[in-house]
Structure formats: structure tokens, C-alpha cells
Amino acid sequence: MFRGYLRLVLFGLGLLVGVQVPGFIDDYGKRVAAQRAESEESLTGFRETAARFFNGDLNALVSHYRASTDEVMRSDAQSVEHLVRRSELLESEWLAMQGPWYAQAWHLASAADQKMLEETIEAYSYQVLLAPQAIAWALASGLLLAWLVELIVLGAGWTLGVGRKHKVIAHEKRHWR
């Protein structure tokens, strides 16, 4: 009876954890989209200058700033280059978050930008989405957690001999004479 309740508790815990995954993926995607929009806004003037003088090549604009004899322009080259690199990073993150749900989940687990991932974790508030993908994640997580814990407990019990029935073999009496 206790094992049955334990399974239910583990399944429920897995459900609650699993239902968070789509919400977290969505929050990360929204963070990336918002920062990407802000980055694009901050580069607008530089993009116009690059379009006018360098066929839209922001890297050529940065090179021009670096090669300038004006100390202010050389100093600004580093700032503009930082904005360009940040924009490129955000664009690649945004593209990764435009794929199917499993690609998004894999990207977050393996290649997400650590700073944005940490920011998303810090700002994340637990939620229960009733979207189909959230329900699928919840059921899969619940079953997986309950199954893994049961396997671990049963494996440990079997290894330690708990619950095994020992056969007693009756030996004939031997007379030593």
C-alpha cells in the first residue's frame, strides 16, 4: 500500500516538474526576443551609417572606426563592436528558439547562453500551463520519475537482498564414522 502511495507522490511530483518545462522554454524565448528587439534598436543608427558608407557591413564600420585618427572614433569602435557581437548572439539564440519544441528544449539543455539562462531562472515564476505540450511534458516527466525511482529502489533492494525469498535446502544428515 505504501509503495502505491509513493508511486502516486512521485508521479505527481514529476507532473509538477514536467508542466514547468514549456513555461520555462516560453519565458526564455520571450527574454531572447525582447533583448533582440532592444539590441536591434540600439544598432539602428549604426546600421544606417553602415548602409550609407559600407554596403550595410557593420564590421567594416567597426574597422573604419578602429583605423580612424580620431581618438573618440577609436574608442567608440569597441562599443559598436560589442553591440554588433551582442546582436549576432541574440539573433542566433532567437533562431534556435524558432524551431520545434524538442529543438528548443535541446538548445536550452545544451547550448543556451548561460547569462540569459541564469536571468530566466532567477525571474521565473512557477506556473501551470494547460497547453497540450505542457500536459505531454507533465505526463512524460511523471511517468519517467516514478519509473526511475522505482527501478532504483527495486535495484537497491535486490542488490541488498531485501524481499528475496531464500530457499532452504534440506541436506541429508551425514554420519561421520
Score class of each variant (00 low, 15 high):
150 E>I: 02
101 W>T: 09
102 Y>P: 01
102 Y>L: 15
71 E>W: 05
41 E>W: 06
94 W>P: 02
135 I>H: 05
38 E>F: 10
109 A>E: 09
68 S>Q: 05
130 L>D: 12
29 G>E: 09
1 M>G: 15
50 A>E: 00
146 A>E: 12
105 A>D: 03
13 L>R: 07
159 T>A: 14
40 E>Y: 02
66 R>S: 06
144 L>N: 05
68 S>D: 06
15 L>T: 04
58 L>N: 02
14 G>S: 12
12 G>N: 07
136 A>E: 07
61 L>K: 00
159 T>D: 00
121 I>A: 09
127 Q>A: 15
143 L>N: 03
130 L>C: 11
129 L>N: 12
31 R>D: 08
117 L>H: 04
77 A>W: 05
137 W>C: 15
176 W>V: 10
19 V>Y: 01
59 N>S: 14
86 R>A: 02
131 A>N: 08
113 D>P: 03
89 L>K: 09
55 N>Q: 15
27 D>C: 08
25 I>W: 01
74 R>P: 07
38 E>D: 15
37 A>E: 15
155 G>D: 01
6 L>W: 08
117 L>G: 04
164 R>Y: 01
53 F>P: 01
3 R>E: 14
65 Y>T: 01
104 Q>W: 04
153 V>M: 11
13 L>W: 05
63 S>G: 13
162 V>N: 02
161 G>W: 06
141 S>G: 14
132 P>W: 08
23 G>C: 10
157 G>A: 06
92 S>K: 10
87 S>N: 14
3 R>I: 14
128 V>S: 12
165 K>D: 07
103 A>C: 00
37 A>F: 13
67 A>H: 07
72 V>T: 14
109 A>F: 07
96 A>C: 04
92 S>H: 09
112 A>G: 05
40 E>D: 15
143 L>C: 11
72 V>F: 11
111 A>S: 15
132 P>D: 09
33 A>M: 13
169 I>H: 07
149 V>K: 02
91 E>D: 08
44 T>Q: 12
104 Q>V: 04
87 S>R: 02
94 W>I: 00
57 D>I: 13
176 W>P: 01
107 H>T: 09
121 I>H: 02
136 A>S: 10
63 S>E: 14
154 L>Y: 14
16 L>C: 13
170 A>K: 04
28 Y>M: 05
113 D>E: 15
35 Q>T: 12
80 V>K: 03
55 N>D: 15
22 P>D: 09
